[in-house]
Amino acid sequence: MKPMLMTPLALAALLGACAHSGADVNPILDGAPTAQFQSDLAACRGLARNQSQLDRQTMAAAALGAGIGGVLGEVDDEGDALEGAVVGALAGAAAGASEASETRKTIVLNCLRGRGHAVVN
Results as ranks from 00 to 15, higher is better:
residue 35 A to V: 14
residue 36 Q to M: 07
residue 36 Q to I: 10
residue 37 F to T: 04
residue 37 F to I: 05
residue 38 Q to H: 10
residue 38 Q to A: 13
residue 39 S to T: 13
residue 39 S to D: 12
residue 39 S to R: 15
residue 39 S to Q: 15
residue 42 A to N: 11
residue 43 A to H: 13
residue 44 C to Y: 10
residue 44 C to W: 06
residue 44 C to K: 03
residue 44 C to E: 09
residue 45 R to M: 15
residue 45 R to I: 02
residue 46 G to A: 12
residue 46 G to M: 05
residue 47 L to K: 15
residue 47 L to P: 02
residue 47 L to I: 03
residue 48 A to Q: 03
residue 49 R to D: 15
residue 49 R to I: 08
residue 49 R to G: 02
residue 49 R to P: 00
residue 49 R to M: 10
residue 50 N to A: 12
residue 50 N to G: 15
residue 50 N to P: 01
residue 51 Q to I: 11
residue 51 Q to C: 08
residue 51 Q to H: 14
residue 52 S to I: 06
residue 52 S to V: 13
residue 52 S to T: 11
residue 53 Q to Y: 04
residue 53 Q to D: 12
residue 54 L to M: 11
residue 54 L to S: 07
residue 56 R to P: 01
residue 56 R to F: 09
residue 57 Q to T: 12
residue 57 Q to D: 08
residue 58 T to K: 01
residue 58 T to D: 02
residue 59 M to N: 00
residue 59 M to V: 04
residue 59 M to K: 00
residue 59 M to R: 00
residue 59 M to E: 01
residue 60 A to V: 11
residue 60 A to M: 14
residue 61 A to I: 01
residue 62 A to R: 00
residue 63 A to S: 14
residue 65 G to W: 00
residue 65 G to V: 00
residue 65 G to S: 06
residue 65 G to M: 00
residue 65 G to D: 00
residue 66 A to W: 00
residue 66 A to L: 04
residue 66 A to C: 09
residue 67 G to C: 08
residue 68 I to A: 14
residue 68 I to V: 14
residue 68 I to F: 15
residue 69 G to Q: 03
residue 70 G to R: 03
residue 71 V to L: 15
residue 72 L to S: 06
residue 73 G to E: 13
residue 74 E to D: 12
residue 74 E to C: 04
residue 75 V to M: 13
residue 75 V to R: 14
residue 75 V to H: 07
residue 76 D to L: 07
residue 78 E to M: 10
residue 78 E to Q: 13
residue 79 G to S: 15
residue 79 G to A: 15
residue 80 D to R: 08
residue 80 D to Q: 08
residue 81 A to C: 09
residue 82 L to K: 11
residue 82 L to G: 03
residue 82 L to I: 10
residue 82 L to C: 02
residue 82 L to V: 13
residue 82 L to H: 11
residue 83 E to T: 15
residue 84 G to F: 03
residue 86 V to D: 03
residue 86 V to M: 15
residue 87 V to D: 04
residue 87 V to Q: 06
residue 88 G to N: 12
residue 88 G to Y: 02
residue 88 G to T: 07
residue 89 A to G: 09
residue 89 A to H: 03
residue 90 L to W: 01
residue 91 A to L: 15
residue 91 A to Q: 14
residue 92 G to F: 00
residue 93 A to I: 04
residue 94 A to K: 05
residue 94 A to E: 10
residue 96 G to S: 12
residue 97 A to W: 01
residue 97 A to I: 05
residue 98 S to T: 13
